[in-house]
């Protein structure tokens, strides 16, 4: 299963103009977290909040819709959100924690829930995991280097970053710049090259841009939790949807990219195993499903 287990795939976006303006894609993450806060489905959310350096996020416990909104937009660098779940449970005393997480962070959370060896009273407080798709991530210094050295713009002037159509895009107040994604290769963190999860297969609901038109997101609802939250939000008019069959480029592209990521990274895993290096995953020869995330 190249996209993991899911109930429904839809193209969707937030109906809120302000969220549409600030968010990365369809504003699904911001809209759903705000809705879940309003409806008391969660009592706080760990997000990649703004830090003191532009584009270098700091995980943050957002307690209001405004704080969730302030954290909207993709930062293409590491934001160890899982770390801050404990702060949400202890310092903030939250009983129902929501979070946004890239696939590998979702894996850390799910492993902790199934095997909470040394983690007391956090597992059952995780009420909502919104997963976002992820092909790779960059150490901050990598990001800074290719933006300022290859694209010739200082990160402070950048208003939005995006990946799409095979390019890395940077938007400033008066310019749109891009470099082919090839140019960023080798700058990603190495650990991403053995990652077998593109679409946050273990989240309650996953979303990303691929598959849907500009300004819209592709949503995969997975658990009962995620599915029911999404339905409630649609019902409440917070989110509007279109069938995937009606949008371009459609689910096929998402499946294609996911398969490519898995196949490429499984090769790296096989190579590492051949070299005798540790990997937490199986060699392709030992797997029933070559595309599975283990």
């Amino acid at each position: 299963m190249v996209l993991g287990t899911y109930k429904e795939a839809l193209s969707a976006r937030s109906t809120d103009k302000q969220i549409q303006k600030i968010s990365q894609d369809g504003g699904i993450v911001t809209a759903l977290l705000s809705f879940a806060l309003d409806e008391k489905i969660i009592d706080g959310a760990v997000v990649a909040g703004p830090g003191k350096d532009m584009w270098k996020p700091v995980p943050q416990v957002a307690m209001t819709s405004d704080e969730v909104l302030a954290a909207a937009g993709t930062k293409y660098t590491l934001s160890p959100n899982v770390w801050t779940l404990k702060e949400a449970a202890r310092q903030y005393g939250l009983e129902k924690i929501g979070t946004v997480s890239i696939p590998c962070q979702t894996m850390g959370i799910r492993k902790m829930q199934s095997y909470p060896f040394g983690v007391r009273f956090v597992a059952d407080k995780i009420a909502l995991i919104l997963g976002i798709y992820c092909m790779e991530n960059f150490p901050f210094e990598s990001l800074r280097t290719f933006i300022s050295e290859k694209m010739g713009v200082s990160p402070e002037l950048v208003e939005k970053m995006d990946i799409g159509k095979g390019k890395f895009w940077v938007y400033t107040a008066d310019e749109t710049l891009s470099i082919p994604l090839k140019e960023t290769h080798g700058y990603e963190q190495n650990g991403c090259n053995i990652c077998l999860d593109y679409v946050a297969e273990l989240a309650d609901l996953s979303t990303g841009s691929v598959g849907s038109p500009e300004g819209w997101s592709t949503v995969l609802t997975r658990t009962d939790n995620g599915d029911s939250l999404f339905k409630q939000a649609v019902e409440a008019g917070i989110i509007e949807t279109k069938p995937m069959a009606d949008v371009k480029p459609g689910l096929g592209l998402l499946e294609k990219l996911s398969k490519e990521k898995k196949e490429k990274n499984q090769k790296t895993i096989d190579n590492r195993i051949a070299m005798g290096l540790p990997v937490p995953y199986k060699a392709s020869t030992e797997k029933e499903d070559p595309l599975a995330n283990y």
């Binding site: 995980p59 660098t77 590491l78 934001s79 160890p80 959100n81 899982v82 770390w83 801050t84 779940l85 404990k86 590998c104 962070q105 894996m107 850390g108 959370i109 492993k111 902790m112 040394g118 983690v119 007391r120 956090v122 991530n137 150490p139 901050f140 210094e141 963190q189 190495n190 650990g191 991403c192 053995i194 990652c195 290096l277 540790p278 990997v279 937490p280």
Partner: peptide, 29 residues
């Protein structure tokens, strides 16, 4: 030794969340 040195770390922060003595922080991911 076993994660960062082995090119396995992805900066998720699970280690820092888990440490019972708060000995682990996250710096530059």
């Amino acid at each position: 030794l076993k994660v960062v040195n082995q090119a396995l770390c992805i900066g998720c922060g699970t280690c820092a969340m888990s440490c019972p003595t708060r000995a682990v922080g996250m710096t530059d991911g």
